[in-house]
Deep mutational scan, measured.
Amino acid sequence: TSIVNVSSSLNVRSSASTSSKVIGSLSGNTKVTIVGEEGAFYKIEYKGSHGYVAKEYI
């Protein structure tokens, strides 16, 4: 489990790309479970499925 480190919110994306669809967002200090990594993104558990967040904010 890791913590989201942002002051406002962090986009959760459908794939490991800044141009991919935003499927949701997480607020600062939210706990997330990392299940993998791809480039500059972590794959996380998100709403019963998976999403991707930028590593620099975790």
Rank of each mutant, 00 (worst) to 15 (best):
T1S: 11
T1G: 12
T1A: 13
T1V: 14
T1P: 11
T1Q: 12
T1H: 14
S2A: 15
S2E: 07
S2I: 15
S2R: 13
S2K: 11
S2H: 15
I3P: 06
I3V: 12
I3Q: 09
I3G: 10
I3H: 10
V4F: 05
V4N: 08
V4C: 14
V4E: 06
V4R: 07
N5P: 08
N5M: 13
N5F: 07
V6I: 13
V6T: 12
V6E: 07
V6W: 06
V6A: 09
S7Y: 06
S7R: 11
S7W: 07
S7K: 12
S7I: 13
S7G: 13
S7N: 11
S7A: 12
S8Y: 11
S8R: 14
S8V: 14
S8N: 11
S9K: 13
S9V: 13
S9T: 12
S9M: 12
S9R: 14
S9D: 09
S9W: 12
S9Q: 11
S9N: 10
L10Y: 08
L10N: 05
L10D: 03
L10K: 04
N11Q: 15
N11L: 15
N11T: 14
N11R: 13
N11C: 15
N11S: 13
V12M: 03
V12H: 01
V12Q: 00
R13T: 08
R13H: 15
R13Y: 15
S14I: 13
S14P: 03
S14Y: 10
S14C: 13
S14Q: 14
S14N: 08
S14R: 10
S15R: 11
S15E: 14
S15L: 09
S15N: 08
A16H: 04
A16C: 05
A16E: 02
A16D: 02
S17N: 10
S17H: 09
S17I: 06
S17E: 07
T18Q: 11
S19K: 11
S19F: 09
S19M: 10
S19E: 12
S19V: 08
S19A: 11
S20Q: 02
S20A: 13
S20G: 13
S20Y: 06
S20I: 01
K21D: 11
V22W: 05
I23A: 02
I23C: 05
I23R: 02
I23E: 01
I23H: 02
G24I: 05
G24S: 02
G24D: 03
S25D: 05
S25L: 14
S25Q: 15
S25N: 10
S25T: 15
L26A: 02
L26M: 06
L26Y: 03
L26S: 01
L26C: 04
L26W: 03
S27W: 10
S27T: 11
S27K: 14
G28R: 14
G28M: 14
G28F: 13
G28H: 13
G28Y: 13
N29S: 09
N29R: 09
N29C: 15
N29K: 10
N29H: 11
N29T: 07
N29E: 08
T30K: 06
T30P: 04
T30G: 06
T30A: 12
K31V: 14
K31M: 13
K31G: 06
K31Q: 12
K31I: 14
V32Y: 06
V32F: 08
V32P: 04
V32S: 01
V32A: 04
T33I: 13
T33G: 06
T33F: 10
T33K: 12
T33R: 12
T33Y: 10
T33L: 10
T33V: 14
I34P: 02
I34K: 02
I34C: 04
I34E: 00
V35M: 07
V35N: 02
V35Y: 05
V35T: 06
V35L: 14
V35P: 00
V35W: 05
G36P: 00
G36Y: 03
E37C: 11
E37K: 05
E37N: 05
E37V: 09
E38N: 06
E38L: 06
E38I: 08
E38G: 03
E38A: 07
G39M: 04
G39L: 05
G39E: 05
G39H: 05
A40E: 14
A40T: 08
A40Y: 07
A40Q: 11
A40R: 08
F41G: 00
F41L: 01
F41A: 02
F41M: 03
F41S: 02
Y42M: 04
Y42I: 04
Y42R: 01
Y42P: 01
Y42D: 02
Y42A: 03
Y42K: 01
K43H: 04
K43L: 09
K43G: 01
I44H: 00
I44Q: 00
I44K: 00
I44M: 02
I44C: 02
I44F: 05
I44E: 00
I44R: 00
I44V: 05
E45G: 04
E45V: 12
E45C: 14
E45P: 04
Y46R: 00
Y46Q: 00
Y46L: 03
Y46I: 03
Y46S: 00
K47N: 14
K47M: 14
G48W: 04
G48V: 03
G48F: 05
G48A: 06
S49Q: 11
S49Y: 08
S49W: 07
S49K: 10
S49L: 10
H50K: 04
H50D: 05
H50E: 06
H50T: 10
H50C: 09
G51S: 02
G51N: 01
G51Y: 04
G51T: 01
G51A: 08
G51R: 02
Y52M: 00
Y52F: 10
Y52W: 11
V53R: 00
V53N: 00
V53Q: 00
V53E: 00
V53L: 05
A54Q: 14
A54M: 13
A54C: 14
A54V: 08
A54R: 14
K55A: 04
K55D: 00
K55S: 04
E56R: 13
E56H: 10
Y57F: 13
Y57V: 07
Y57A: 13
Y57E: 14
Y57N: 09
Y57I: 06
Y57H: 12
Y57R: 07
I58G: 03
I58T: 05
I58F: 13
I58H: 03
I58P: 03
I58M: 07
